[in-house]
Design a binder for these strands. Structure first.
Ligand SMILES: NC(=O)c1ccc[n+]([C@@H]2O[C@H](COP(=O)([O-])OP(=O)(O)OC[C@H]3O[C@@H](n4cnc5c(N)ncnc54)[C@H](O)[C@@H]3O)[C@@H](O)[C@H]2O)c1
Ligand SMILES: NC(=O)c1ccc[n+]([C@@H]2O[C@H](COP(=O)([O-])OP(=O)(O)OC[C@H]3O[C@@H](n4cnc5c(N)ncnc54)[C@H](O)[C@@H]3O)[C@@H](O)[C@H]2O)c1
Lengths: 230, 230
DNA sequence: AGGCACTCGTGCACACGTTCACAAAGCCCG
DNA sequence: CGGGCTTTGTGAACGTGTGCACGAGTGCCT
């Protein structure tokens, strides 16, 4: 009965792919597919089939040789491993452009991450309603976190305010943070932080574009003499 | 004069850190700091100092032993390597919640990625103005891409429309795509795709929260007998 | 001028991640 | 009931990324 399956540490790279498999499996299930091979799942996920099998093997031996994986059962196991057997309410700090888009986005709650609250410092924003949730003052953060048992916080403030926002989240009892501000947050080691940085993504694309162009076709007129200063 | 510096391939992991260094260097420069050690930069970036030195060494030997790196010169070199010596106009497909937040976000243009256009299929959205840019019909995409020489496209449509949006971007001549829709895009190998998937990020955090809790405190009532079938 | 303190650049060892390749295991059919 | 076909699960090889440790170059002070 696979007694210690829980305690096995799953590699980071695998953890970041499991949600992708999960979504694809859900789609397959909805389409009436009840059995799937690693090859097919790999094709859908755009990865190597061996990688799929190895990833899934960290959860246990849930496949059937010669047949594949039973979709619904696999969905159940992946969800369990990712901790998706219950909802994880999130609190959003910053009700600007991005905070509003996030709050207004239904996909959050659907996937098990209901918006437990959204807070801001700006009194003009407090009281307005976004996506069915009323914006509250940031001073109410500890109360929201505690009464709603929130462990995940989202930082959607300008960069200059992001560290403070993170500090307040941590002080309120949040233990995981998703950061959209373009700064490196400093938090206690026990807090899990993930960042989503648009500028970084675009600059990575820019790197590849520049490289594709040969790296030097767009000759830069000025500034070349700089190397003399080094 | 470092003749073939351009042709050296830079590891992916390094490419993804360069934008972070770049931002920090810019901040330091603005604060009047004109020299910085790998140690200090590492501290700001939250990484190991040896990693910073190794990353920067891929650009060339631009540091001075015993002293550190000249901030402005390093900024110039990193920008050059990332292809940031000129602007990269982007086109956004999908003028919904997210597309609006993106268009209304000034940080884009500031960092060298001006919004060259935003398109949608919905006639109700076409003609409205977001962040100073008028929403146009998606049929005008090829024209926008060509006249504005856009090589980067952003997909901000619902998942169901994302593949079509990507196909249209590719057909119009875009060679890099930033995808916000929760699906795996299939594009020609020559197209560079990066994805930003909120649900994945949250589920990764969920995994760590669940694990932190001991992995089994929230005992799941039903479904346990399933393992008998395996 | 010489010595000393400092910091870069990098070789090396180790950890992590990916892919191949194949034995083991299950299913189906005759 | 046995042989052939399919697909899993995983050992082993390979590739990529990380971090230590130290030689080499530079500036400063005496
Ligand atoms: N909008 C986008 O598309 C986009 C894209 C990429 C990154 N970002 C990043 O996301 C963050 C938010 O962007 P935005 O466009 O929503 O900015 P915004 O200025 O529209 O909104 C920021 C909100 O945070 C609030 N705020 C400021 N200080 C606060 C504090 N200490 N505590 C709580 N709330 C505070 C402000 O009152 C405001 O409502 C920024 O860091 C930005 O760089 C946004
Ligand atoms: N809003 C968020 O905070 C958020 C967060 C995470 C992920 N996302 C993802 O971003 C995407 C967009 O989210 P949203 O909230 O902006 O959705 P939305 O429904 O508000 O907007 C989608 C827009 O795309 C347009 N569209 C539909 N089909 C199109 C097509 N074929 N070509 C061009 N335009 C088309 C629609 O007319 C609409 O204006 C979704 O895939 C969503 O999963 C959004």
């Amino acid at each position: 009965m696979a007694p210690d399956r829980n305690r096995r540490r799953i590699p980071d790279a695998t953890v970041s792919r499991l949600p992708v498999y999960l979504r694809l499996l859900g789609e397959q299930s909805a389409e009436g597919v009840d059995n799937i091979s690693s090859e097919r799942l790999a094709e859908l996920a755009g990865v190597n089939a061996a990688k799929v099998r190895k990833d899934l093997s960290y959860l246990g031996s849930y496949g059937t040789r010669g047949v594949g994986y039973e979709v619904d059962y696999l969905v159940y196991q992946v969800r369990r491993e990712l901790g998706l057997t219950h909802d994880w309410p999130v609190v959003i700090v910053g009700a600007g452009n991005l905070g509003q888009a996030l709050a207004g986005y239904g996909g959050f709650g659907e996937r098990g991450f209901p918006v437990a609250g959204i807070v801001d410092v700006d009194d003009a924003k407090v009281g307005t309603v976004l996506g069915g949730v009323r914006v509250r003052h940031i001073d109410e953060l500890p109360q929201i976190v505690q009464t709603k048992r929130v462990s995940i916080g989202v930082v959607a403030t300008p960069g200059a305010a992001a560290q403070e926002a993170a500090d307040r989240l941590v002080a309120a009892g949040v233990t995981s943070i998703l950061n959209f501000a373009p700064i490196v947050l400093s938090v206690p080691r026990s807090i899990e932080v993930r960042k989503v940085d648009l500028a970084v993504e675009l600059q990575i694309l820019s790197y590849h574009e520049q490289r594709r162009a040969g790296g030097a076709i767009h000759a830069v007129p000025g500034g070349a003499s700089r190397s003399a200063t080094a």
